[in-house]
Amino acid sequence: MGYMKRKEPDVEKQKEPILEHVKSALLKRYRLNFTKQDVSLWFLCKQEASLLKITNHACQRFNEAEDYGKRKEPDVDKKKEPILEHVMPALVNRYHLNCTKQDVSSLWFLCKQEASLLNITNHAHQLSNEVKVYLLEGTDDLEGFVVKGYGESISYKMRLPLLKDGVQLMKDAIIAKEENYPDGTYEKARLPFANAETLVHFTCLLGLFLEGSDFEKIQQEEPLDLPLMPPQKRNWKGGLVAPFASNNMLVLQQCPGKTGDNWISQGQNSSYFVQVLHNEAPVSMPEAPLLNLTNKSCHFSRKLRY
């Protein structure tokens, strides 16, 4: 490391003619007063290229996932019909309207749009009683689970490049830490931004919000049981999985390497483990139990695998 630090000024000096040349080209093209340091932001272009490569890889599978969603929609609608049938008489009695199942579905959709766009939330509960509103929410959870979530592995496998990219970043950080790289010479965080569907897929790729032995089933690509309908308790709830401004974080933790039943020794001075946070809250992973930081200890039984 001492050699690298000594050589850095020489390397920077050798890069200057190239940066000067590129700076002039950028000045002519964009009429901006770039400095050599601005040109060094080429690093960001490389990051963008990396992310675009990931995105293109995912797009190769996107059409397959979209086709699957279209194929499953009739099946999902059929499974939703008993709930809509159950809610429909309440609307007929309350508003004296000759509602159909499609009308119930449309009214529920409008209530959700009103809540999300105008922050008016009371009309949904006026649609029917609280129990039936929860049932309608259950139909949304059912659709999200089948079409966007765990219904078919292609839906979340398309996000595998994102996970691999994150794991590689953590591997690089471990090397940098072990070899005492100076701050600023390696990435400490990467913050990709995406839409809600990508977040749902990534959440499923991590195996979150599953029931019982479901994780073993998805490893074998076996079909999962559908989420339970209200009032039964269930882990999969769309409002919890992907609310507004939802996010996932993979946090690399460095824990003291000790021997004993409750500690994992890697043959080094420290061990590294991954903690998963969903909407800033720690959550358990099927193959990587949650870090126990309540007493500033690090108790982990397995490392993250993918």
Rank of each mutant, 00 (worst) to 15 (best):
G257D: 13
N269A: 15
Q254V: 11
L252V: 08
L228Y: 07
D214W: 00
R234V: 01
L224M: 07
A194E: 11
P243A: 04
K237W: 09
Q266E: 15
G260D: 07
M285N: 07
C255P: 05
P256D: 05
Q232R: 12
L240Q: 05
E211W: 05
A196L: 15
E280S: 10
P223Q: 03
E216I: 11
S270W: 12
T198A: 12
Y272E: 02
N195L: 05
A281F: 10
P289G: 08
C204Y: 05
G257V: 00
D214H: 08
M285E: 09
P227M: 02
A245R: 03
G239F: 11
W263E: 00
T259K: 13
E280K: 06
L224N: 03
F244H: 07
Q219C: 15
T198C: 09
P282C: 15
G257Y: 06
Q219Y: 09
N262F: 15
Y272P: 01
Q266P: 10
T259R: 11
M249R: 00
L226V: 06
Q254A: 13
P289W: 14
A245M: 14
F209N: 06
L206W: 11
M285S: 09
D261G: 06
G267D: 05
W263V: 03
Q268W: 13
D261F: 15
Y272K: 03
N248H: 12
S246Y: 00
G260N: 07
A288Y: 09
S265Q: 13
N235F: 01
F273H: 06
P243D: 01
Y272W: 10
V274Y: 06
A242I: 11
K233L: 10
G238L: 13
S270F: 13
P230R: 08
R234A: 12
I264Q: 02
Q220M: 11
P289Q: 03
V241M: 08
P289C: 09
F273G: 01
C204P: 00
D261M: 15
G267K: 12
H278M: 10
N195R: 06
E211M: 09
F215I: 01
V241I: 14
F193L: 14
L210N: 02
S284T: 11
Q266C: 12
S213I: 04
M249G: 03
C204V: 01
L226S: 02
F209A: 01
Q219P: 08
